[in-house]
Amino acid sequence: MALRLRPVGLDFVETAPVRLVFARELSAAPGPVFRALAEDVPGWTTWFSAVTFARPTGEGAGREIRLKGGTRFVETVLAAERPEVYAYRVDATNVPGARAMAEEWRLAPAGAGTRVRWTFAVDGTAPFRFVLNRARPGLERAFRDAVTSLDRRLTRP
Rank of each mutant, 00 (worst) to 15 (best):
V8G: 06
A100G: 04
R82S: 12
E140M: 10
I65C: 00
Y86C: 06
G70P: 01
R115Y: 11
G58I: 02
F143E: 00
M1K: 03
A112F: 11
K68Y: 00
V147Y: 06
F143M: 07
A100N: 08
T71A: 14
P7I: 01
V8F: 11
S149T: 07
G111L: 04
F48P: 00
K68P: 00
A54N: 09
V18D: 06
R117K: 13
A102F: 01
R141E: 01
R129K: 13
V13L: 07
G69L: 10
V116R: 00
W105R: 04
R117Q: 15
R117Y: 07
V147I: 09
G60D: 10
V74F: 03
G138H: 06
F130Y: 14
G69P: 06
E64N: 06
D91C: 08
N94D: 12
R141P: 00
F128P: 01
N94Y: 05
L26A: 09
M101F: 11
A29Y: 12
T125G: 05
E14K: 14
E103L: 12
L150E: 11
T45H: 02
T46N: 06
V51G: 00
E140L: 07
R136Y: 11
A98G: 00
F48K: 13
A102S: 06
R24L: 09
R144P: 02
D151H: 02
A146R: 00
T93R: 04
G69N: 08
V18N: 12
A80T: 01
P83Y: 10
M101I: 01
E84G: 09
V116P: 00
D11N: 04
G138R: 08
A135S: 05
R72I: 09
T71P: 03
G70K: 01
R129S: 15
I65G: 00
N94W: 01
L37V: 07
Y86Q: 12
V41Q: 02
V116Q: 02
A79K: 11
V8D: 04
E39F: 09
N133R: 14
A98E: 00
P32Q: 13
Y86R: 14
V95T: 10
A126S: 11
P96R: 07
E59C: 11
P157W: 07
A112E: 13
V18S: 12
W105I: 03
